[in-house]
């Protein structure tokens, strides 16, 4: 059995992932730069990845780690498309401030 499985309870990983996820939520709610908001989404995805990997190791089941790979795939695709959209928004509005992106409101 791994040393980490013997000495660290799985709860610690749950708490760590929860805290990282909540920091990501806070960043999404408070930041105005759209690029930083996307980064906070990446942080939330990573918190979930960490928890999946932890449970995968504790239960010695490889499926959790495979799921982490697919989440990484989705994150990479999301970052590429999101940044493409941001660049084209910047070209039109000359800013990446999400407060100005309310054209659909009225």
């Amino acid at each position: 059995m791994l040393e980490i499985v013997r000495t660290v309870p799985i709860d610690y990983y749950v708490y760590l992932s929860t805290i990282l996820f909540v920091i990501g939520v806070f960043g999404v709610l408070t930041r105005r730069n759209a690029i930083v908001v996307l980064m906070c989404v990446e942080l939330m995805l990573n918190a979930v990845n960490l928890l999946l990997a932890a449970f995968s190791t504790y239960l010695s089941d490889a499926q959790g780690q495979i799921m982490v790979f697919f989440i990484m795939v989705v994150a990479a695709a999301e970052a590429a498309v999101g940044l493409g959209i941001l660049v084209s928004i910047y070209r039109n509005t000359k800013s990446t401030d999400i407060s100005f992106l309310d054209n659909l409101r009225n």
Partner: peptide, 23 residues
Amino acid sequence: TLVGALRGGLQVAVPENANVEVG
């Protein structure tokens, strides 16, 4: 909410013959 919902409720039974080389 998340910590309160997840606290103490986790009973992870680590398999005895756990494969360390899963990763």
